[in-house]
Deep mutational scan, measured.
Amino acid sequence: TYYTVKSGDTANKIAAQYGVSVANLRSWNGISGDLIFVGQKLIVKKG
């Protein structure tokens, strides 16, 4: 599943929404920190 980042989103918020850990969200998308951008497409695997 892909999720498009919206204004006000955070890695924590997206992870919680899908029931996954922030560490997994980072791993699936090659993100090292919490910096995400509006319009960015993230791979999300439901927990």
Rank of each mutant, 00 (worst) to 15 (best):
V5D: 02
K45L: 12
A23P: 06
L42Y: 00
K13G: 14
N29S: 02
S27C: 14
N12S: 15
V44S: 01
S32E: 15
T4F: 10
G47C: 13
G39P: 00
T1W: 14
T1H: 13
V22P: 07
L25P: 01
V38N: 05
G47V: 13
I14P: 00
K46D: 12
K46A: 14
N29D: 01
Y3F: 03
K13M: 12
S32T: 14
V5E: 02
Y2E: 08
V38F: 05
I31H: 04
D34I: 07
A15C: 08
Y2P: 04
T10V: 05
Y3V: 08
G19K: 08
K6Y: 04
S7F: 14
L25Q: 00
N24C: 15
I31F: 14
T10N: 07
Q40N: 05
T4N: 06
L35E: 15
R26W: 08
Q17P: 00
G8N: 06
T10L: 04
L35F: 13
A16C: 12
V22N: 04
A23H: 10
Y18V: 08
S32Y: 11
L25G: 01
S21K: 06
T10Y: 03
K46I: 15
N29Q: 02
F37C: 10
K6M: 11
L42P: 01
K13D: 11
V44D: 01
G8M: 05
G33E: 10
K45V: 11
V38D: 06
A16V: 10
K41F: 07
F37H: 10
K41M: 12
R26K: 13
I31G: 05
V44N: 01
V44T: 05
Y18D: 01
V22L: 13
N29M: 02
Q40D: 07
Y2D: 06
L35D: 15
I36Y: 05
N12A: 15
K41V: 15
K6H: 07
V38H: 06
S21W: 03
Q17G: 06
T4G: 03
S32W: 10
V20P: 01
A15F: 02
K13V: 08
N29W: 03
K6S: 08
K45C: 12
V20I: 15
N24Y: 07
A15P: 00
Y3N: 02
S32I: 15
T4K: 07
Y3R: 01
T10Q: 04
Y3T: 04
G30A: 09
G39L: 03
I43Q: 08
L25W: 00
K13E: 10
I14M: 01
K6C: 10
I43E: 05
D9C: 03
N12H: 14
G47I: 13
S7G: 09
Y2G: 04
V22M: 10
G47Y: 11
N24F: 07
W28C: 04
S27V: 11
A11E: 09
N29P: 01
N12R: 13
Y18E: 06
G47T: 12
K41N: 09
N12L: 14
D34E: 10
G19F: 07
K41S: 09
R26P: 02
I43S: 04
T4E: 11
I43A: 06
G8Q: 05
S27L: 14
D34A: 07
S21I: 05
G39W: 04
K13Q: 11
V5I: 05
I36T: 04
I36W: 06
Y2A: 05
Q17C: 12
A15M: 03
K46Y: 13
D34M: 08
Y18I: 07
G30K: 10
S32L: 13
K41E: 10
Y3A: 04
L42R: 00
S21F: 04
Q40C: 05
N12K: 14
N24Q: 15
K45Q: 13
V44E: 01
T1F: 14
I36N: 02
V5Y: 02
D9W: 02
Q17N: 09
Q40L: 07
D9K: 00
K45P: 07
A16Y: 09
N12V: 15
F37R: 09
G47H: 12
K6G: 07
Y18A: 07
S27E: 15
V22C: 06
R26L: 15
A16M: 11
A23Q: 12
D9Q: 01
L25C: 03
T10D: 08
T10F: 03
I31W: 07
G8W: 04
Q17D: 11
V22H: 04
I31V: 07
T4C: 11
G39A: 03
S32C: 12
G30I: 06
I36M: 08
A11H: 07
V38W: 04
I31K: 04
S32H: 12
L25M: 04
N12T: 14
S21R: 04
S27G: 08
R26I: 14
G47Q: 13
I14N: 00
G47M: 12
W28H: 02
K6Q: 13
T4S: 07
N29L: 03
I14D: 00
T1G: 10
S27Y: 11
S27K: 14
I36Q: 02
V20H: 01
K45M: 12
N24V: 11
I14Q: 00
G39N: 06
T1Q: 12
N12C: 15
A16K: 12
G19R: 07
I36L: 14
F37S: 09
A15G: 04
R26T: 10
G39D: 06
N12I: 14
Q17M: 15
A16Q: 12
A23Y: 06
G33I: 10
G8L: 04
Q40E: 06
A23C: 11
L25T: 01
A16R: 11
K46P: 15
K46F: 14
Y18G: 02
S7C: 15
S27N: 11
D9A: 00
A16F: 10
N12F: 13
F37E: 11
A15L: 03
N29V: 01
G30V: 07
R26G: 06
G30P: 06
G47K: 10
V44K: 00
S7Q: 14
N24E: 15
I43F: 08
G8I: 03
S27M: 13
N12Q: 15
V5C: 06
Y3W: 03
A15Y: 03
Q17T: 10
K45R: 13
K13S: 15
G39T: 03
K6L: 09
V44W: 02
I31P: 04
V5T: 05
G47S: 12
V5N: 01
L25H: 00
K13C: 14
A23R: 08
L42N: 00
G8F: 05
L25K: 00
V44L: 07
S32N: 13
L42G: 01
W28I: 05
Y2M: 09
V38Y: 05
V44P: 01
G30W: 06
S21P: 08
A23E: 15
L25Y: 00
V20K: 00
D9V: 02
